[in-house]
């Protein structure tokens, strides 16, 4: 149990992992250290608070299913392409092993979950990426599932809401992962040209090829507080320019200030805001 009290070696990448599962076999008195305020807090309190620190409001990473539970009206989510996995592109060293491991650890088939649901009674298509599946990297399955979701939404005249979290393109799939950026963007454009609404919610961290494609293509771009959002990761930039980065660089508040995010929304308010935005874009309300 010692690991529960350990400070993460790299704040950017490792925090929040121990709050991943709120399983009943975890005793109530178990504590974690908030990486933001460094306070010891009860895991159960954090879990009851949508995985947000009760002391400072730090938003811990959560998995895709947890997010769907928070956002969708109960019992309305219908998943699409749930079992899609890649059968080709597996010759990259250790890729197959890594995929299997990710599937076991996350209990998901891939790094994004797609489907249709209701939010405050309104139909919408929704995709949610999962940080616990190879850091939400985009390979051909992630790209295909998101593309199909947009195509379905275009056919059925539905809005799309997308929660992003990603380390970028999935290197192990080589150039095919790069092509997913173009493929998803094409589907987003068709959806947009059909006059339909697309809202993205950027969560920590959203970087690389996902930032440089569908994450930044929303008509409305929301973000969770303090989420890291960028094209290049902070370490890569530091190595390139050989300079320490300023405090708060590439955080949601920084992007808001620079004009790249519409609104920062706390996790507890996200459902309400999304519901409001969907309602403001209903054709019969126009």
């Amino acid at each position: 149990m010692k690991f529960l009290f350990k400070k993460p070696a790299n704040k950017l990448e490792s925090y929040g992992k121990h709050t991943k599962v709120a399983s009943p076999d975890v005793p109530d008195d178990m504590c974690i250290v908030c990486p933001s305020c460094q306070k010891q807090i009860f895991t159960s309190d954090v879990n009851d608070n949508l995985n947000v620190c009760t002391n400072c409001g730090h938003h811990f990473r959560i998995n895709a299913r947890q997010r769907l539970n928070i956002i969708c009206d109960e019992g309305t989510f219908v998943e699409m392409d749930a079992e899609m996995v890649t059968e080709k592109n597996l010759d990259f060293p250790n890729y197959k092993k890594k995929l299997n491991q990710a599937q076991l650890e996350s209990a998901e088939h891939e790094a994004v979950i797609c489907g249709v649901a209701k939010i405050h009674g309104q139909d919408t298509a929704i995709f949610v990426m999962d940080p616990y599946f190879m850091m939400g990297t985009m390979g051909s399955v992630v790209g295909e599932k998101i593309t199909r979701l947009f195509e379905t939404a275009t056919e059925q005249g539905l809005s799309v809401i997308g929660f992003t979290v990603s380390g970028g393109a999935r290197m192990q799939e080589g150039i095919l992962s790069l092509m997913q950026m173009a493929k998803t963007s094409a589907a987003v454009k068709k959806h947009s040209d059909a006059g339909l609404l697309y809202i993205t919610v950027l969560t920590d961290p959203t970087t690389g090829g996902v930032t440089a494609s569908f994450a930044m293509e929303g008509d409305i771009i929301l973000s969770e507080p303090k989420a890291l959002i960028g094209f290049a990761g902070p370490r890569v930039i530091e190595q390139t320019i050989r300079q320490k980065l300023p405090n708060g660089f590439q955080r949601a508040e920084f992007l808001l200030d620079k004009g790249f995010v519409d609104l920062i929304v706390n996790r507890k308010d996200q459902k309400e805001i999304l519901g409001k935005l969907l309602s403001l874009h209903r054709k019969e309300n126009a």
């Binding site: 987003v188 454009k189 440089a212 994450a215 959002i229 960028g230 094209f231 620079k258 004009g259």
Partner: peptide
Amino acid sequence: EERGQGQAIAENLM
């Protein structure tokens, strides 16, 4: 990053 590298690329793709 300040001027939106990701956004600029994404817009070109679309």
